[in-house]
Design a protein around this nucleic acid. Structure first.
Length: 463
RNA sequence: GCCCCCAUCGUCUAGUGGCCUAGGACACCACCCUUUCAAGGUGGCGGCACGGGUUCGAAUCCCGUUGGGGGUGCCA
């Protein structure tokens, strides 16, 4: 019991937007690792304060996405989902206490009026106009926090001490004119209500932190331990945004990235697991330390993610690979044939979604002829006679990859060709392309009749 | 504008005053292997932003400059 009482409580607090941001995934992973390695708890809180964006299916999406990266709602370290909206009473109650304690005051100025006034006075921002007007609650009145004089020091697990001169912080809004609480208040009240001990989030929240810390103190509580990890950026070094960048975790999932690869890659951003950066989650989960987190923004590099994914795909057993690819394969494709080819396509895949495109010629009625490939190979003088010879020899040959290969090797000497050149017309005839999985293995899987049919068709086309 | 954060190869990082002639990975290039393309192997290219200190000694500590980023809402 004692241990439970002392166990840290981390939280992950996404707002439901309909897609799960990769940056959020990384933050979730950090919190998850920290909670699990300390015997603590990972609290999932859905920040649904903004009524406009609040749909139940969004929450399902978040839970699914978390599950995909190994953060299971069934794990004993997982708590939630809790909903911010369910704490509305507590938010307003806190607001009331803040007002009654003199830590907050009401103001009836609209944003437009504030702007005009600032402009007229040649200043910027709000300026605390209603501080001493003694206004009470009322329609259109916002509640503002009375920022005290002095300095606020945020002790951050990643960045050390960060000092803010309170004079640079405006009297910010706690409750909107329509009576609803703003994120900054709700966030603090929820963290307190949920007994959160550690707030680990992205750096973009650092400027909020002194404000939240002041609210904690005004409410009479000790703030949690803060930690702000650097943001993820795009190739322009701008924060990853859903408008510009490919940030939806679901999209990577649907393209056939393996969760293990995504998790591993995400963890290497801003942190390093040590000697070898390819590490299983079980190891990273134990090794991860906030003190070791880098301080500068990290570029989310699709190429490196792809490299990780390829590496993870190559580590799969054939059975695992076949099973993993299944969702991307058309229903009517012969699974046994695909399985035969699986070991051969394995080193050629970047994503699971690439699989069908590599072996589609095996399952279609006719190969889709790539004209560039055709022109490159079939216009050679030897193409037609060689193809004719191959057809003749293959009518009799043992239909195994080995004999098919040696048979072609016997023929090619007549034309003074190397295997690389000699196999090309056959490959284009059968697959339609110049590149693809190992030819003779593919022929073996395709079978004699269909293979010969395609070669004859090609011969005819050459004329 | 103001506040805050940051700064090691193109990118992600190792490095916490001497082990650094700065290590690894991705990308790129070359070669090898080879049944095309991959994968794999070997090698190469490439970096401590700049200027001052501190120190016997600095990528590592301090200051400044420059450059990036984040925040500046009655969004979260």
């Amino acid at each position: 019991m004692r241990a439970m009482a002392d166990a840290p409580r981390y939280r992950f607090a996404p707002s439901p937007t309909g897609m799960f941001h990769v940056g959020g995934a990384r933050t979730a992973l950090h919190n998850w690792a920290l909670a699990r390695q300390s015997g603590g708890t990972f609290v999932l809180r859905i920040e649904d304060t903004d009524e406009v964006r609040n749909r139940p299916e969004w929450t399902e999406g978040i839970i699914d996405a978390l599950a995909w990266i190994g953060i299971s709602a069934d794990d004993p370290h997982f708590e939630g989902p809790l909903f911010q909206s369910a704490y509305a009473e507590a938010h307003l109650d806190a607001a009331r206490r803040l007002f009654e304690g003199g830590h907050a005051y009401y103001c009836d100025m609209t944003p437009e009026q504030i702007q005009e006034r600032a402009k007229a006075e040649g200043t910027t921002g709000y300026g605390g106009w209603s501080r001493d007007r003694g206004l009470g609650p009322g329609p259109g009145h916002v509640l503002r926090f009375r920022v005290p004089e002095g300095t606020t020091v945020v002790r951050d697990q990643v960045r050390g001490e960060v000092k803010f001169d309170n004079g640079t912080i405006e009297d910010f809004v706690l409750v909107r004119g329509n009576g609803t609480p703003v994120f900054i208040l709700a966030n603090v009240v929820d963290d307190e209500a949920m007994a959160i001990t550690h707030v680990v989030r992205a750096e973009e929240h650092l400027p909020n932190t002194p404000k939240q810390q002041m609210i904690w103190q005004a409410l009479g509580h000790e703030p949690p331990v803060w930690a702000h990890v650097p943001v993820l950026v795009n190739d322009q070094r701008k924060k990853l945004s859903k408008r510009r960048d490919k940030v939806a975790l679901e999209q990577y999932r649907d393209e056939g990235y393996l969760p293990a690869a995504m998790i591993n890659y995400l963890m290497t951003l801003g942190w390093s697991p040590g000697e070898d950066e390819i590490q299983p989650w079980s190891v990273m989960e134990q090794k991860f330390r906030l003190d070791d987190v880098n301080l500068s923004p990290a570029f989310f590099d699709l190429k490196k993610l792809a490299a990780f994914n390829g590496e993870y795909i190559r580590k799969l057993t054939v059975d695992e690979l076949v099973e993993a690819c299944d969702p991307w394969l058309p229903d009517d494709w012969d699974r046994a044939a695909f399985r035969e080819m699986a070991p051969h396509i394995q080193p050629r895949l970047v994503t699971l979604g690439d699989a069908p495109g590599v072996v589609d010629f095996l399952f279609t009625d006719d190969p889709e002829i790539d004209e560039t490939s055709w022109d490159k190979t079939m216009t050679a003088e030897y193409a037609a006679p060689l193809l004719a010879d191959v057809i003749g020899a293959y009518e009799q040959a043992d239909w195994t990859a080995d004999t098919l290969k040696s048979t072609l090797e016997d023929l090619m000497t007549r034309y003074e060709l190397k295997l690389g050149k000699a196999q090309a017309p056959v490959r284009v005839a059968v697959t339609g392309r110049t590149v693809g999985p190992p030819l003779f293995e593919a022929l073996e899987v395709m079978g004699r009749d269909e293979s010969l049919r395609r070669m004859r068709a090609a011969l005819e086309r050459i004329g």
